[in-house]
Write a protein that binds this DNA or RNA. Structure first.
Length: 275
DNA sequence: CGCGCAACCTGTCTGC
DNA sequence: TGCAGACAGGTTGCGC
């Protein structure tokens, strides 16, 4: 589903088309979209503003508008942002001053959008939800070690927790743990020194590979022009239960970890003692 | 506080 | 063939 590489792919594709344009109108067809501050309707808050920058934080997409207004979107699981004026399941339509349009389409209506008035409100919004950006210089083995200290949460749950590391979801967590040879149920606080290095490197590697492949399309994710990503063809363990491990040939297994379908090589990723 | 889990939602797949 | 139930998953909120 849309994780960091998928959202980054959308950002890169959409930014050239929208940055510098003005929003002529925003048509809100799903009432989950709101402006919590000042009782201002979302559409009224953004109308006429210039799009200064399209940014990303974790799995969130941020439209930085003139006048210090920020439109923050989250695609959740089935949301898509398409550069077109029509599609199935359109929840929001943004018309640009050059005649172009962007629609937020979401089959399951899980996707959300919120207008935040002022950079401070935007910063507060993210500060309470998101941890370190895994592709930034702050994402070091020492940083992960600090986050993991004393915690008994399974490694998989740790990676999925956006308050610690922002942007890793179910696909990339499985792939990173396989590369780092860490069992998904291993309590994160019991990792040894070198394993933190391996985990950092693996997370960076899979996220960059995902971006290079322009994201993974399993069911719903699409590029802004409707095309599919390619990273699903490079999965090492995710969705590969019953197939041989690319490293040792052992049959890939599917288990449940952190309430999610989780794929691993039982030989490369040795089980923790008590779990 | 830390952790697990249900809820949110809807389309698709599985089993009877 | 039909239908009920399971499953998919990012985030939030609740309970222990």
């Amino acid at each position: 589903m849309p994780e960091l590489p998928e959202v980054e792919t959308i950002r890169r594709q959409l930014a050239p088309a929208v940055e510098g344009r003005r929003i002529e109108d925003m048509e809100v067809l799903d009432q989950r979209w709101s402006a919590p501050a000042l009782g201002v309707e979302a559409a009224d808050a953004v109308r006429g503003r210039r799009i200064d920058k399209l940014d990303r934080r974790g799995k969130y997409l941020v439209w930085e508008l003139s006048g210090d207004v920020h439109l923050v979107m989250h695609l959740r699981m089935t949301g898509n942002l398409l550069y077109t004026d029509d599609a199935r399941f359109v929840r929001v339509r943004i018309r640009l001053d050059d005649g172009g349009s962007v629609v937020f389409a979401d089959q399951r209506r899980f996707g959300t959008g919120v207008v935040l008035l002022g950079g401070d409100a935007r910063d507060d919004y993210f500060a309470s939800r998101l941890g370190v950006e895994p592709l930034s210089a702050d994402f070091t083995a020492d940083h992960i070690r600090e986050l993991a200290r004393g915690r008994r949460a399974p490694a998989k749950a740790f990676l999925l927790n956006q308050e610690r590391i922002a942007g890793v979801g179910n696909i990339y967590a499985d792939e990173a743990l396989f590369i780092a040879r860490i069992h998904p149920l291993r309590p994160i606080g019991t990792l040894r020194g070198k394993q933190f290095d391996a985990l950092r490197a693996a997370v960076v590697e899979v996220l960059e590979a995902g971006i290079d492949a322009r994201g993974a399309t399993i069911d719903d994710f699409r590029h802004t022009d409707g095309a599919s990503g390619a990273f699903q063809d490079r999965f090492l363990v995710h969705l590969r239960a019953g197939e041989p491990c690319v490293r040792c040939g052992t049959t890939i297994k599917k288990i449940r970890a952190a309430g999610r379908g989780t794929y691993l090589c039982p030989r490369c990723q040795r089980a923790p003692r008590a779990a």
